[in-house]
């Protein structure tokens, strides 16, 4: 088949424009993909019947009819669905979570340095790291559920599992350091770390490998 790139882009742009002011959703993506592939096929059909690409594209669009009714339907659908989903509340939680998470990590770092210079016992110094262990997952969750211009927010359960994975990894490090200072034995440190670290790595790997595409474009 010949190179249809410019045509593909024009079709995609036409469809994107028709649904420009509709909130992104899986249903919208599906409908757009359906319309795009059908419009493309129709244009190519018209080309085969002797129209040049420009005429074929115009003709295909004209005979398609106005898409405003479909766009309106999708808009009212997303309005209906925004009730249980609460994207506004999700965004709010994400903002608060990000602020809290960063503050927790900073607080952890400051107390860590502070206690270090206070000549306290190494166990207590390491103990303050728990704030970083808590802050890390909070930041992870907040960042992942955040909706950006190009990506939809991750669903809450998935984001929560990511947060747990990060938490396990951090807690693994934390328990390694604390048990090392508490017992003075390196092998205990490694043993303590291993359990959490393995669980965290396993979970994170699984999540990364099964992550669905959250980008908003068709490609």
């Amino acid at each position: 088949m010949t190179d249809n790139r410019p045509l593909d882009q024009r079709i995609r742009k036409y469809i994107d424009d028709a649904f420009r002011d509709v909130e992104p959703s899986q249903q919208l993506l599906d409908l757009k993909e359906e319309l795009t592939s059908n419009l493309r096929e129709k244009t190519l059909d018209l080309c085969r019947r002797g129209l040049d690409e420009e005429q074929a594209f115009r003709e295909a669009i004209a005979s398609m009819g106005s898409l405003s009714g479909l766009a309106e339907e999708m808009r009212s659908l997303s309005r209906k669905q925004s009730q249980p989903g609460h994207p506004a509340i999700d965004a709010h939680i994400s903002n608060i979570g990000l602020v809290l998470g960063v503050l927790l990590v900073l607080f952890g770092l400051f107390t860590l340095t502070m206690t270090y210079y206070m000549d306290m016992e190494p166990t207590s110094v390491a103990g303050t790291g728990i704030f970083i262990v808590i802050g890390g997952p909070v930041i992870t969750y907040s960042v992942l559920t955040r909706e950006t211009r190009r990506k939809q927010g991750m669903n809450r359960l998935r984001a929560f599992m990511h947060a747990v994975a990060v938490g396990l990894l951090l807690f693994g490090l934390f328990s390694a350091v604390t048990s090392r200072y508490a017992t003075g034995e390196m092998f205990i440190a490694i043993g303590a770390m291993m359990v959490f670290f393995l669980a965290g790595t396993g979970l994170l790997l699984y999540l990364l490998l099964t992550n669905p595409d959250r980008s908003k474009g068709c490609q």
Binding site: L31, E34, S63, M64, G65, S66, G69, L70, E73
Partner: peptide
């Protein structure tokens, strides 16, 4: 008779 595609997709939904 040509059924407009826009009508068609609304009906599919």
């Amino acid at each position: 008779y040509e059924l407009k595609e826009a009508t068609l997709y609304a009906a599919f939904r």
